[in-house]
Design a protein around this nucleic acid. Structure first.
Length: 524
RNA sequence: GGCCCCGUCGUCUAGUGGUUAGGACACGGCCCUUUCAAGGCCGCGGCACGGGUUCGAGUCCCGUCGGGGUCACCA
């Protein structure tokens, strides 16, 4: 049997991180068995703007390396892959269900059904529709229509017996048919409900394994009823636990950002993302600028393989020690048996660890290629010092974990006369230190006579300088850092000067100690 | 509330009757240190509870408790 799985997103306009996990597991299962992965758009209830609402989803999946064999933009033998374009198939199925008396026309008004439901709740019993407005004969139909009623089509569910589902992840799950409702499958306006469309599509597309989130487990019986009624092939089911909120078991939701921000690690993730996004002119107030949505990571410069590596481990494990995976490793090793049953919460801190590991694996040239777009977006590139980017990246080492982090080192690329200073740090390290300017001034003179500008020579020079004055390196180096880089933190000071070179280092120093041996200038 | 699912360190997990319950992240301490990272070493920390079954239970059974999902003319 050919393994065929599918991921069926609704056109919501964004790709949820939990959706990614589901899609990834479906994709991995198909790929690891030499099968096919199908993408289908569940747009039965959305009429407008479908194209713009699925674009972010398709782009997100592609960015992550999750490609589809059949579906939007690639077509396939069972096209179309949009539910909105398959109404004729659904109508045929509904007619057949009606013919086989597995479904019926129901003329109840919404309030009438509601009244029955409320009565059941009041009497504390399971609600079971009386089928009072069920029409199975032409006489019934004309009578109800004579009363001005309109009908929906409902499933005529069994009212006794059990259903056993053998789920690949949960094992055997038993449902009582009597607990199930006569669900609507076609609305009064003629449109179709998800459950019906879903089953018809899975049959038509020859889906062998339905791998989806756990929230669908409860509505599997009604789908199996349709499958059995129509004589379709029963797919294998695998219900995945969902991705939960940080530190909780509740399903992760895009709309609860405010709540998640109370989590320290989550807040840090957002903060970090915002600091990058704001520098490249992105609107960080956009509701989709949110770590629950995949777009966030792409915008800030995360590596897709890091997201994949992290998210696959939320609810799946190979063994007791292997954590680092590339896509190929996953295709080789993935199996549904490794999927865990409990909901697993999203851990922003651990995600960042995977990002770091994957980023550090890249060569300097690759990192540069990833970082440059951010410098361009921040209008720092193109610039005349562009060729030192490789040196900066190497010196920065793991201080750059995400491509956008290169912006923390933009001071290397700005014009020496336009360097901006962190006022607070400047005050602390220079203005409020009486000796600072004099020391820097003397060091400036030494530097200007220095030929060798490599790290070791500069370090030796500094050592000699402080030894001669009976002070410590730390008594001057902080002031030196602010003056040369504008910041209080950064890569090693001698590396910094070495990368900038003698000319630029002196130029920057001179802005502050320009009035040699003089007082603090009113530079800003 | 009915039905269904789930329950190992704070978090992600390994564990398929006999383990000093393992790893990773986070956290704490020490070392290193010109800042920030990183790195090295050490440490804290868990089988939800109660009954069974068994020579022996995190692992099997029952119950309790806790968490979650679902009960739409949403998907």
């Amino acid at each position: 049997m050919t393994i065929r799985t599918r991921f069926a997103p609704s056109p919501t306009g964004y790709l949820h991180i939990g959706g990614v996990r589901t899609a990834l597991f479906c994709w991995l299962f198909a790929r690891s068995h030499g099968g096919q992965f199908i993408l289908r758009i569940d747009d039965t209830d959305h009429q407008r703007n479908v194209e713009s609402a699925i674009e972010p989803i398709l782009r997100g999946l592609r960015w992550l390396g999750i490609d589809w064999d059949e579906g939007p933009e690639v077509g396939g033998v069972y096209a179309p892959y949009y539910q909105s374009q398959r109404s004729d198939k659904y109508q045929t199925a509904v007619n057949e269900l009606l013919r086989r008396k597995c479904a019926y026309r129901d003329y109840a008004r919404a309030e009438e059904i509601q009244a029955e439901r409320e009565a059941a709740v009041k009497e504390k019993r399971t609600f079971t529709y009386s089928r009072r407005w069920m029409a199975e004969t032409d006489a019934d139909i004309s009578r109800f229509e004579g009363e001005g009623r309109r009908c929906v089509i409902r499933l005529k569910m069994p009212r006794e017996g059990e259903l056993l589902i053998d789920d690949l992840i949960r094992g055997k799950v038993i449902f009582n048919w009597a607990d199930e409702q006569d669900h609507v499958i076609q609305r009064a306006d003629g449109s179709f409900i998800y459950h019906l469309a879903n089953v018809v599509d899975d049959e038509d597309y020859k889906i062998s394994h339905v791998i989806r989130a756990e929230e669908h487990l409860s509505n599997t019986p009604r789908q199996i009823f349709i499958i059995q009624s129509l004589g379709y092939n029963l797919p294998a089911y695998a219900h995945l636990p969902f991705v939960a909120e940080p530190g909780s078991k509740t399903k992760l939701s895009k709309r609860k950002l405010d709540k998640y921000l109370k989590n320290k690690d989550f807040a840090k993730l957002v903060e970090h993302g915002k600091s990058i996004a704001s520098r490249i002119g992105l609107n960080t107030d956009d509701e989709n600028f949110n770590p629950v949505i995949v777009d966030f990571y792409e915008k800030v410069g995360y590596l897709p393989e890091a997201i994949i590596n992290y998210i696959v481990l939320v609810g799946w494990a190979l063994d007791d020690r292997t954590e680092f995976f590339l896509m190929d490793d996953l295709v080789k090793n993935f199996s549904l048996e490794g999927v865990t049953k409990g909901a697993a919460s999203f851990d922003p801190a651990k995600l960042l660890v995977f990002e770091e590991k994957h980023f550090l694996m890249r060569t300097t040239a690759e990192k540069a290629r990833l970082c440059i777009p951010f410098l361009e977006a921040a209008k720092i590139f193109p610039c005349e010092y562009g060729d030192i980017i490789g040196e900066v990246i190497e010196a920065a080492g793991d201080r750059i974990k995400v491509s956008g982090d290169i912006l923390n080192f933009s001071d290397f690329f700005v014009d020496d006369d336009l360097l901006e200073y962190d006022k607070v740090i400047y005050e602390k390290r220079v203005t409020s230190q009486p000796e600072a300017i004099n020391l820097l001034s003397e060091f400036y003179d030494l530097l200007s006579q220095q030929e060798q500008f490599d790290v070791q020579s500069l370090e030796n020079l500094m050592q000699k300088f402080v030894d001669g004055k009976s002070i410590k390196v730390s008594d001057i180096i902080h002031a030196l850092r602010v003056v040369v880089t504008g910041k209080g933190v950064g890569i090693g000071m001698f590396e910094t000067m070495s990368i900038l070179g003698k000319k630029r280092t002196l130029k920057r120093l001179k802005r502050i100690v320009g009035t040699v041996h003089g007082s603090v200038g009113d530079r800003f």
